[in-house]
């Protein structure tokens, strides 16, 4: 890789790095401890040592959240992390109810976004794919998929936009169907006689199941029937299987 590319990459990432801490400005959220005591950990995890205990009636400021942990600041300026289940044992300074949710199955049926990746078989080749999904409502989602197929004789990348319909949102193992369209670039391996890359439109009909694992994870098994629209008399049909993991939020 050339030096200028290194630098553009570096600048891109650095600018990203600087933007992020700036978005920390929100009103202070103060709450009062409403239980016997609350353990304060040095880090956002149950394994980090407890170095302080909040007392009943103490006012603390909630600073930010990472996974199931909330960073708090005491009146004396001590900072540490408390668990979400403990923050719900506090109340707002004006008597508001503190109700932080822990991710569970309920969040799965009310999810807004999905982020997932999978490994699979694209006809007889290995494939890897990643996707993002956005839910219009409980039943209908729009998804963008990127798939890389690594074959013995050619490599392909496929991009599709899909509509996904999930009819039964309250089931832990729940089926879905999908329709999609996109393009596929096929590049034969250079070790064979020189051939040109080709690009085809692709239509996709598929279906599969989600299986709720726990927390923010679901497993997703999917079958797609891909129709490659070619110039020849017959279109090419390719069967595809994928098994992957999806995080939702």
């Amino acid at each position: 890789m050339s030096l200028p590319t290194y630098f553009t990459r570096l600048i891109c990432v650095c600018s990203l790095l600087f933007i992020t801490p700036a978005c920390l400005a929100k009103d202070a959220t103060n709450v009062i401890v409403d239980t016997g005591y609350i353990d304060v950990h040095t880090g956002p995890g149950r394994g980090y040592p407890v170095f302080h205990a909040l007392e009943k009636g103490e006012t603390i400021e909630l600073l930010k959240q990472r996974t199931d942990w909330i960073k708090v600041k005491t009146k004396r300026g001590k900072k540490g992390w408390i668990h979400v289940s403990d923050v719900n044992k506090t109340r707002g300074v004006n008597g508001e109810v503190v109700a932080f949710s822990t991710p569970g199955f309920e969040q799965f049926s009310n999810r807004k976004f999905e982020l997932g990746f999978s490994a699979g078989q694209f006809e007889n080749s290995d494939s890897i794919s990643a996707y993002v999904g956005w839910h219009l409502n409980k039943n209908i989602a729009l998804e963008a998929h990127a798939t890389q197929v690594v074959g013995d004789f050619s490599d392909s990348s496929m991009f599709t936009a899909n509509v996904v319909l999930t009819p039964f949102t309250n089931w832990r193992i729940t089926p879905f169907v999908t329709l999609g369209a996109g393009t596929i670039d096929i590049s034969p391996d250079a070790t064979l006689v020189s051939t040109e890359d080709r690009t085809n439109d692709v239509l996709q009909v598929g279906g599969g199941i989600y299986g709720y694992i726990g927390r923010r994870f679901v497993a997703r098994l999917q079958y797609n029937n891909n129709t490659l629209v070619t110039d020849r008399n017959e279109n090419e049909e390719i069967n595809e299987w994928r098994l992957g993991i999806t995080a939702f939020f």
């Binding site: 920390l24 109700a99 949710s101």
Partner: peptide, 9 residues
């Protein structure tokens, strides 16, 4: 109600 949307994640 105070909930997760009041804090930066």
């Amino acid at each position: 109600e105070i909930k997760e949307s009041d804090l930066d994640a």
